[in-house]
């Protein structure tokens, strides 16, 4: 009985982890290339959710077409916001630029959230997608939509892996992520890749937001439902490891759900925080980071 229960919760956690994986990947990618924690991923997830909703519910596009919209709109908005808000701060480099950028990105997050509130109001919107009943395999229930979310996340992760290992831009980005100084010696200028990293990173956040919104609803604070778990996933993954971000998301997702067996559900978010603390205490570089971030 208990085993079945644990297995079910692990599956629930896996599903949640898949949802977290894409934004965590985006956050990690931006951190790797740009060198700062961009807190505006939460609002960009919401942007992705609204973009997908506008394309799906308002324009009547089919689900297969709305995901690219959820990717491109926050991607472009991410670049614009980066140029307008963050680039002027970056142009004056100093020892604290990364932290300054993090602070600006928090303000950016607030600005985007309220811009959405201004444009769309506080109402809840939903997709015209039917909610399907769970299918049960060997006593473990799982929803078709959740399976598709998992598949979407995996497909995108594989596509990204291919991009990073096969293309010139991808290789350059991975080199920067692994070691910016070394990459510079090889003649790769991290700043040049910044725009691309932001586009892909925010685009991933947007898809994550759209998938989240299909499960929940579209409102100005959709993205904030997941933000703490996303940070936890990135930290667990070591902040600079792309594989680590995906694995970190799955770990944080599963730990959070399984913990409910022994813990009151009201403290579920606290598991994310506890996981961060434990990882920092035991493996300060993250569970999956190959390269150190100590300085």
């Amino acid at each position: 009985m208990l085993i079945a229960e644990v297995a079910q919760y692990m599956v629930n956690g896996l599903v949640l982890g898949a949802l977290v994986a894409l934004p965590a990947l985006g956050l990690t990618l931006i951190f790797s290339v740009q060198g700062f924690v961009n807190f505006s991923v939460a609002a960009q997830m919401t942007v992705g959710a609204y973009a997908a909703w506008a394309a799906g519910a308002a324009l009547g596009w089919p689900p297969i077409l709305i995901m690219p919209v959820a990717f491109v709109v926050p991607g472009i908005l991410g670049i614009v916001a980066d140029r307008l808000a963050l680039a002027p701060v970056r142009r004056r480099p100093g020892a604290h630029t990364p932290l300054m950028l993090a602070v600006v990105s928090i303000a950016l997050n607030l600005a985007l959230e309220n811009a959405l509130h201004f444009l769309f109001g506080g109402d809840l919107r939903s997709f015209d997608l039917a909610v399907e009943r769970d299918v049960s395999v060997a006593g473990i229930a799982m929803g078709p939509q959740q399976l598709r979310n998992l598949a979407t996340a995996l497909t995108i992760a594989v596509t990204l892996a291919a991009f990073f290992s096969l293309t010139r831009w991808g290789k350059a980005m991975r080199a920067v992520a692994d070691n910016a100084d070394l990459a510079r010696l090889k003649g790769i200028e991290p700043a040049r890749l910044a725009g691309l990293a932001t586009f892909i990173g925010m685009g991933l956040a947007g898809i994550g937001g759209a998938l989240l919104a299909i499960d929940t609803s579209v409102d100005p604070s959709t993205g904030s439902r997941l933000i703490l778990i996303i940070f936890a996933a990135s930290v667990v993954g070591g902040l600079t490891s792309l594989t680590g971000a995906v694995l970190g998301a799955l770990v944080v997702g599963i730990v959070g759900e399984v913990a409910l067996i022994v813990m009151p559900p009201v403290y579920q978010s606290l598991t994310a925080f506890v996981v961060i603390l434990l990882v920092l205490l035991i493996r300060p570089n993250g569970l999956f980071a190959a390269v150190g971030v100590r300085r």
Partner: peptide, 27 residues
């Protein structure tokens, strides 16, 4: 706790602390 790490970690940990404390205050 974050003494050997970059400042970003301290930022995230303190953010997590604030959220965690809010949960304690609520519950």
């Amino acid at each position: 706790l974050t003494r050997t790490l970059r400042g970003d970690y301290l930022a995230i940990v303190t953010l997590g602390f604030a959220e965690g404390l809010r949960l304690v205050e609520t519950n």
